[in-house]
Structure formats: structure tokens, C-alpha cells
Design a protein around this nucleic acid. Sequence first.
DNA 1: CATGTTTTGATAGTAGCTGTCATTTGCTAG
DNA 2: CTAGCAAATGACAGCTACTATCAAAACATG
Lengths: 227, 227
Amino acid sequence: MTSEVSAGSRSPSDSRSPSGSRLPGGTRAGEGSAGGLRERKKARTRVAIRDAAMRLFTEQGFAPTTVEQIAEAADVSPSTFFRYFPTKEDVVLIDDYDPLIAAAIRAQPASTPVIEAVLAGMREVFERLTEDEWASERQRQELFRTVPDLRARQMQQTVAAVDILAGVIAERLGVPSGDEGARALTGALVGVFLTFMYGGDGAGLQPADFDRVKRALLSLRTHLEPL
Amino acid sequence: MTSEVSAGSRSPSDSRSPSGSRLPGGTRAGEGSAGGLRERKKARTRVAIRDAAMRLFTEQGFAPTTVEQIAEAADVSPSTFFRYFPTKEDVVLIDDYDPLIAAAIRAQPASTPVIEAVLAGMREVFERLTEDEWASERQRQELFRTVPDLRARQMQQTVAAVDILAGVIAERLGVPSGDEGARALTGALVGVFLTFMYGGDGAGLQPADFDRVKRALLSLRTHLEPL
DNA sequence: CATGTTTTGATAGTAGCTGTCATTTGCTAG
DNA sequence: CTAGCAAATGACAGCTACTATCAAAACATG
């Protein structure tokens, strides 16, 4: 299924610019600080850039913060900044929750209905976050909420992640990967999520939202009946 | 809706830009060809820019085409280009089919179930397109499919349009505007649409897709049962 | 025709991003 | 330890989207 490379978020290596240009700093989910000095240094640089950027973004806003400022704060050259992140936006966009969520869903007991399994899987991943991770995640969400460009790209990533999620769901349902029903179900789920996260009041994602989504899906039944 | 049907790129007047809007060409609902010479000239300039842009985009691609080229082809200065379209992307993005779809949904008989009404409404707008409008729409869709930046912004528009659609649906259901159930239903609908349009094979929107969506929603019931 | 308003083009400037190349830095073989 | 190699970096130059400003041109109106 044309799996769109990046799940709802970007995994380590980007693959976005066609013209080659490998980015340094790709440690897999393993995250081990192992590896040579080179690897460790790259990881440190990467973190330094992201931390500096996030700090400046929340201090002065996204647009007013220039790449030059970020580079200076992280003590690298602007060139180096772009070697680690293809665009300024990517500093905020990158996360790798997708594989975690996929795994958490797969780990649900087989007797659990699909929808519950998905919701439970997502919930678990978010509940496992440390206090620091939550703080940083809130910052991200705040940026997504306030910066249109970021929100746009975030949504695209989310929709792209449907492919991955649909795969997991199909697997669970015992239907061939790429099955249309599985994809539709996934689309509906993600659609409801997006609506709650960014529509109307748009308060970002919160733990309680998982229950909201479930309740909303239940009410969906009513409307599907007359078909 | 903004996106999925978003048909004929050539509807006469723009009518977007809620508030300030220093952009020229904003003949209000009053509709185009009437009005003073000034208004007519603005409308012509707008069309000229968009036509030139779309032609160049399909000829050479979106990114390689510079605003300067477009301006030259449309016989205006680059400054003027930006007065008519805030960004290069907006030339492709702008469409105002949302109100049409909303109206078409409202026009469905009250006895029709919500979901059917929505699908029928969209389909009608879709089917009313002329051959030229279709051709131009296909061009747009092609760009959305191939240019990530455009796709991202289009999705954002789509999700934003959920608010409008949710209003119409709520109205039809006789529940207060902003009702969570209505929003969820809308989100699910749009989610399924997006999945079919851009996921997997990703062949863009086609008339037959309305049936696909309906069938997919039906299969959704199965999974909602065990909740 | 004279007046005021809108639209336009020219110009200059900022910032994101790309490409190139010489220099430095970590790695490894001898 | 050192010589040599590959990767990473920084400096530089360049392109383009986009903004701001201001004077000239085009329309409108009395």
C-alpha cells in the first residue's frame, strides 16, 4: 500500500528531498546511546538544536525566530542546522510515536474489539509519558494550535499515518492488508480524532479525549442504522 | 468539503477573506461581470493570473515555476501577483464550493437519512460540473497529489471545513450547532473521504467514490456493534 | 477638467533553503 | 602513533518567496 514513508510523524531518516542529501543523526527507536563517539556527538547536536529551537519558539514565537538564531543558540552553523532538519518546521514536527502506538495496539488481547484496541493502544502510549515528555508534548501541541503552517503539516502527517494504522487494523481483523473496510474504519477513527483535536474549541489532545472519541463513535451507530 | 469536491477552479468571484482583506477582486456575493470598469478589470486580472499559473504549473511543475514567470505570463508585476494571491500556493488552493455543497445538502428531502443527504449533496455539486470545470479540477487534484505542501494545506482547509459541514448536519439532525455527535459524524465522514482520496492507490476523487464511501460506512457498523 | 481614491510597478530588503568547497574531526589500518 | 580515509562542519554564494514603501498611473466623481 504505498506506505507513505512517514507515519503520522517522521521517523529518523527523512527521505523528503528527492535530491539525496542524507541527514545525520538517525538513531532508531532503540535510542541506545551506544555507538562510536561520532554517533553520540550527532545525537547531542541534534538534541541541542531541537532544545534551542523549542525554547526560542516558545519565547518569541515560531515565525519571528530565525534559523540563524537557533543555530547560534545551539552553537552550530546555519548550514549544520539544515543538515539535521530539512526545514525549520521539521524541528517541531518530528516525533516517533507511530511505531509505539502500533505496537501497543498489537499488544491488546485478541478478544478486545478493534476500536477499543486502537483507543486503548493510543491511550497507553500517552499514559506512559514522563512528566518531561508531557511538558515538551504540550509545547508542541501549542505550536500546532497557533501556527497554521505547522498545523497543516501535522495534519498531513496524521492522514499519512492512516496507512500504517490501517495495516495494523487489517492485521487484527484478519483481512488482507489494504482492505477497504479496514481503511475506512481507520479513516473514520482518525477523522473523529482530528475533529476533536483541531476543530471548534481545539484544545489539543488530552487523556480524556479517548473517552470522548469512544462516546462519539457510539453515537455514530444511530446514524448508520437507516442506511 | 473544501477539498474533496472543491471543484471547478473557475468560479467567477472569490468571496474568500472574511475580515480585512486588502486583496482586490473581492466582488462580494453580488457576482462578477456587472459593476464598474474597475471591478471587471480586477476580475480579468485575477483570472489571467490563475490561468497563467495553472498552465505553467502543469507544464513545468509547481516548485520550478517562479512567481516572476507567472507574473510575466499574466502580464502583471510580481507585486501585483501577491496583491491577488497571498502566496503561490493560494492560486491552486482557492475554491469556494463549500457553500454550494452546504446548500445542496440542505436541499435534500427531510426524509433522507443524514449520511445519504450529505453524500447526495456532494455528488450533485460534483455532477453539475461542466467538462471544462472537470478538466481544471483534475489539474488541481493532480497538484494536490504530487506537491506535499499543497496537500498539507488542502487538508487543513478540509478539516476546517468540517466545522461548516458539522453545522449543516447538526441543523438537519435538529441538534444544537456544535453538537459533539454531529461533529463526530462529520469527522468520520470526512475522514473516510480523505482516506479514499489520498491514501493507498490515491487516484483522487471520482464519482464512483461516493458509493465506495457509503459501502465503507456500512461495513463500519460491524465494528461498532461490539462496543 | 479637477479632484480624490484605488491600483499598480519599481525598488529594496528579509529569511528560508540549496549547492559547493575547503577544512576539520573522528575512525581505522599499518 | 601515525597516515590516510570518510564523515561532518562552516563559510560563502545564490535563488526565490514574500513584505514594505512610495511615487506614478488608472479610474471615479463632481
